[in-house]
Design a protein around this nucleic acid. Structure first.
Lengths: 192, 192
DNA sequence: ATAATTCTAGAAAATTATTCTAGTCAAAAC
DNA sequence: GTTTTGACTAGAATAATTTTCTAGAATTAT
């Protein structure tokens, strides 16, 4: 067995349980069962239940953030930049629905817990890198003037809501089908 | 002691604990302590921990939904209607921050749990009443054509994100100060 | 080969949630 | 005015779940 594969097996088992039964309702025993690991192994790798949740969360947003930043670096045009925000988010959700659902519903839990500081660090670092890229466009006058908090919320907020509904099976519209519409609206909302 | 005041005391105590320590970390014992109730009383009123969470959630969205619907009934103009969505949401969050934070972060938990069906019923009924009001405007051509799922997400999504950030103390901008800006953007995003 | 380290195992202990029995209290029925 | 009924409270007992702990297997480094 490859090194630390057990750790990944546990995380995958946990995500499976969380998706199927909800985070609250899954017990350590269920994760142990599905992963084939022992209690000892589980606690060796993660220390406690909460850190399993936090690890899954951090890995999820990490992958998405990396993708977004990689794309942004190559994108010089303000409009393309805004559209990339929308489309890379939608693409990630469509490609990783279980992970996306978990991440969308558990930020508060992780932030309130012992890994909260760690998460805030990671988010802040990511936010600053993205912010630096956006600042160029803002200063060049490509965007309507508004607080930067608002800018992010306006661009990605509709995607979050739409994804949440789609992931919960509440949406009659396929998420992938509204990618371009949401990108249009996002750009129209923030252009100068 | 007025009838069923104990029940409300327990709910308030629970919300206090959830705000202070997070939902995961608060135990029945902590709620018992803060409310002054006994274990027996707690279980008499709610049956289990999850139903305390669900009751708090349902009461929270209920109050907000009632306010919104009351406003919508008196609003005949399409633009005013969209602005009302934004402003009544922001006003509610500013007036009830703890409750708003709890509701924003625990929808998934309640939906996944035993009260999930009940919540979906309530949400669907609310959605249909609101949808009926919006349909008039849509059919009169006041709105840009888009799936109704998208419409809601575009109007209220930025508010959700902004509120989430503000409630978590991540926002430098006061939420009340961007109410009109968000309403402007919402209307610009959905007008024909 | 052997020492060091990481990892796995599962029983034992601790913590937390829930059930259960025994009541109190206030109002309705008689 | 007492009895009865049902809602409510109490806390001990029980059950479920998480966490700790000790021992040993597997892997890596020396």
């Amino acid at each position: 067995m490859a090194r630390s594969s057990r750790k990944q097996e546990i995380l995958q088992a946990a995500l499976g349980c969380f998706t199927e039964y909800g985070v609250e309702a899954t017990t350590i025993e269920m994760i142990r069962d599905r992963s084939g690991a022992s209690i000892g192994s589980l606690y060796h790798h993660f220390g406690n239940r909460e850190r399993i949740i936090a690890a899954l969360y951090l890995e999820g947003i990490g992958e998405y953030a990396a993708r977004l930043e990689a794309g942004l670096i190559e994108t010089l045009d303000a409009e393309a930049c805004v559209r990339l925000f929308v489309s890379s988010y939608i693409d990630w959700v469509v490609a990783n629905p279980d992970w996306a659902r978990f991440v969308l519903h558990n930020r508060g839990r992780v932030e309130a817990g012992e890994m909260g500081d760690r998460l805030r660090e990671v988010n802040q670092a990511h936010g600053e890198r993205v912010g630096a890229i956006l600042r160029r466009h803002r200063e060049s006058g490509a965007f309507r003037r508004m607080p930067s908090d608002c800018f992010i919320a306006v661009v990605i907020g509709p995607c979050h809501d739409m994804a949440r509904n789609w992931l919960a099976g509440r949406s009659r519209t396929a998420l992938a089908d509204v990618r371009d519409l949401l990108a249009d609206i996002a750009w129209a909302s923030v252009r100068a």
